[in-house]
Simulated scan of single mutants.
Amino acid sequence: MTFDLGDGIRLRLVDHGDAEAYAAAYDVNRAHLAYWDPVRDESFYTVEWHNGLVTQYLRDHADGRAARFVLTHDDGRILGVANVTNIVRGAFHSADLGYWIDASLAGRGVMTRVIAIVIDYARAELELHRLQASTLLENAASQRVLRHNGFEQIGMAPKYLRIAGEWQDHLLFQRILSDS
C-alpha cells in the first residue's frame, strides 16, 4: 500500500529494508529534530540501531500494536515518518499519533496531507475510534497540522514527555474517527 503525494514523494508502511534510510534521515535531521525529540545516544544514528527498530516496528504491526509509515523520495531517502502507536483495543479502540518531517519539506503542507492519509488508514484499516496526539506548547506548526486534520485540543499535560533532556509540558489533541 503506497500513496503518491507527487514530486517523487510517497507514503508507505515501513518495510524490512528501511534501516539504512532511517539512520540517514535521522542523522541529516539531527539539528532540526533536536528541539522536538528525546536526547539521542550516538548509537541511535547507526544502521544497526535502526535494524533493531525496524524489526520491532514490523513485529508491532503484525501484532496489531502499531502502524508505522515512512515518507520516501524516489531516490530512496526517508523524508519523514508518521506513526500510529500504542494501539489499545477493548472499550478504548484508540492510539497515539506521532510524526516528523525532513527540514527541507517543513512548512509546505506535506505533513498535513500525510496525516489525512494516516487518519483514513486508522479508521478504515485499523478500525480505531480515536487518535490522540501531543505537541510541545510552542510547536505551532504541528498544532496547525492537527487542527487542519480535525483534531481538537482537549487539555494540557504538565511535564508530559522528556524532550531535549527536560520534562516538558504538552498540549493534548484528539480526533474521533468513528463519527466521521
Rank of each mutant, 00 (worst) to 15 (best):
Q143W: 10
V145I: 12
D120V: 09
A106T: 13
F92G: 00
D96I: 10
H129R: 12
I119P: 06
I117Q: 12
S142F: 02
V118K: 05
G150A: 08
G107W: 00
H93Q: 13
H129N: 09
S104F: 00
H129I: 02
R147V: 14
V110A: 02
N139I: 05
D96L: 15
Q132Y: 14
G98H: 04
E125T: 14
V114E: 08
E127Q: 13
S94Y: 07
E127G: 11
S142H: 07
R108S: 07
I115Q: 05
E138V: 11
F151A: 04
L131M: 10
L137E: 07
A124I: 15
T112A: 11
R123P: 06
D96M: 15
T112F: 10
A103N: 04
G109F: 07
Q143S: 09
V114G: 06
S94N: 13
L126S: 06
L128E: 02
I115H: 06
V114D: 09
L126R: 08
V145H: 01
G109P: 03
L126D: 07
L128R: 03
G98N: 08
I119H: 04
E138M: 07
F92V: 05
D96Q: 12
R147W: 14
V114P: 08
T112Q: 09
R144D: 09
L136E: 00
S104A: 10
L128N: 04
V118T: 09
L105T: 03
M111Y: 00
Q153M: 11
V110Q: 01
R113L: 10
I101V: 13
L128A: 05
L126W: 02
A95F: 01
L105Q: 11
L97T: 09
E152A: 11
I117D: 10
F151K: 06
T112C: 08
T112R: 12
G109K: 07
G150Y: 15
G98L: 06
I117C: 10
L136N: 00
V118G: 05
H93D: 12
L126M: 12
A122R: 03
A116W: 14
H148D: 08
S142Y: 03
L137I: 15
L146N: 09
I115L: 07
R113E: 13
Y121F: 13
H129P: 02
Y121G: 00
V145Q: 00
L128F: 03
S134L: 14
Q132T: 13
I117F: 14
H129L: 11
L136I: 02
G150V: 10
S94E: 12
I115K: 06
E138T: 12
I115E: 07
A140F: 15
R123S: 11
E138I: 06
S94D: 12
F151G: 03
E152M: 13
R113M: 08
L131A: 10
S94L: 09
H148T: 11
L97R: 05
I115S: 05
G150H: 11
A122T: 01
G109L: 09
G109Y: 08
G150R: 05
A103F: 01
I115C: 04
Q132N: 10
E138Q: 09
L146C: 10
R113D: 07
Q143F: 11
E127V: 15
L137A: 09
N149E: 05
I117W: 15
R130C: 13
L146Q: 10
A106F: 00
L97N: 07
D120F: 01
L137F: 05
Y99N: 03
V118W: 02
G150I: 13
A141C: 03
L146T: 13
A124L: 14
R123Y: 15
R108M: 08
A95L: 04
S134E: 12
I119K: 10
H93K: 12
